[in-house]
Amino acid sequence: MRRAARYGPWALITGASDGIGKALATRIAAEGINVVLCARRKSELETLAVKLTADHGIESMVLPADLADAQDAARVADITSRLDIGLVVLAAGFGTTGSVLETSLSEEIQLVSVNITAVMRLSHTFARRLATRGRGGLVLFGSIVGWQGVPGQANYAASKAYVQSLAEGLHDELASHGVDVLAVAPGPVASGFGARAGLYMDSATKPDVIAKATLGALGRRKIIPGNKGKLLTASLLLLPRRIRSLVLGRVIAGMRASSTTTRARHSTPGRAVRGTDTRARERSGG
């Protein structure tokens, strides 16, 4: 197992309870690499840990943590210091939806804590550990919305721009130390993120497609996994940044409108349906 030799014997996956993080944990375990499963929801992690151990004969550790809390993020770094971790996948993240006039300041600050501060904290810690051991991999998740400002997801898009830029810079900084750093920029993913954010995502890419492409791209600089993400990126590539922002803003607005219509169809008769769901706490793939 080539990847097990280079990126084992342990991997840390944040956002492992759902979506892209869960799909990556499953594929990494199938490679014979032991996994540390990190997310907020302990019961989901425990269920996944039992399944991965039974299916693949690997060891697993459940590490519940809310990365919006600096103490929890520090605890993740401390507990994992006892393990020989060769692969770090920072898939935890969440998005808010709505204009700055609609969203909660506390939620937006929490988004920065999870999507930026925790990513920097863990990247800084594990970059040093991986460089010391002379081999390994670090995977960070940006998004195709991170290449321009996006009305209706301004803070989320800005956070993903940070992660994308960080990963590309770290790729060159750590290459000479034997550490592969990969920037992953997915498009819409069918992970539950959209529903929680009040977005209806038609033809979204399945998390396992993202996971397979991500592991196959280890050693490269960046990847846009999934046909949907590639198509959206290609269609916007030659447009001025300002126009890309407007186009994606309309796409987000359309997703919100479709989500409202879908919820209305499935709501109980006589019950009010919220027109806007301005926040999402999805710790996986965003």
Rank of each mutant, 00 (worst) to 15 (best):
T103A: 06
T117E: 14
A92F: 07
G219V: 10
S191H: 07
T276G: 06
R2N: 10
R274D: 14
Y200I: 09
H56D: 03
G57M: 06
V119D: 03
L12R: 05
T125Q: 15
S259P: 12
A127G: 12
A157Y: 00
T96D: 13
T26Q: 08
G187S: 08
G198E: 08
E173C: 04
A65M: 08
P64Q: 12
H56I: 05
A77D: 12
L12V: 13
G249D: 04
V247P: 03
A70Y: 08
G98N: 04
A280N: 11
V50L: 15
V50C: 14
L122E: 02
V251Y: 02
V145P: 00
D66K: 07
V145L: 12
L246M: 13
S106F: 07
R271W: 13
L48E: 03
R121H: 12
Q164R: 10
V112G: 06
L24F: 02
G19R: 05
L87F: 09
D208W: 00
G285R: 03
L90A: 03
G254C: 11
R279K: 08
G8D: 04
D180V: 06
G219A: 08
L170T: 09
E46S: 15
E31F: 01
A49H: 07
A118I: 12
R40H: 13
L111C: 09
V62L: 12
K228H: 11
E46A: 15
A183T: 07
G86D: 10
A29K: 04
V209G: 06
I252Q: 04
A185N: 14
A197V: 06
R241A: 15
D55F: 04
A54K: 14
P240A: 11
G19I: 02
G219M: 11
A213F: 06
V247R: 00
F141A: 09
A157Q: 01
K212C: 05
G142F: 01
T233P: 01
L182V: 02
R133D: 05
F126K: 01
S159F: 02
Y156M: 05
T53Q: 15
G15N: 02
D18E: 13
G192A: 10
T96E: 10
I20Y: 11
A92D: 02
E44I: 05
G270P: 05
V50T: 13
V100H: 04
E107I: 10
S159M: 04
V114E: 01
S113G: 10
V89K: 05
A195L: 04
L37V: 15
P186V: 15
G19T: 05
L48R: 02
L248R: 02
A195K: 10
P64F: 15
A175V: 05
H177I: 08
T53P: 02
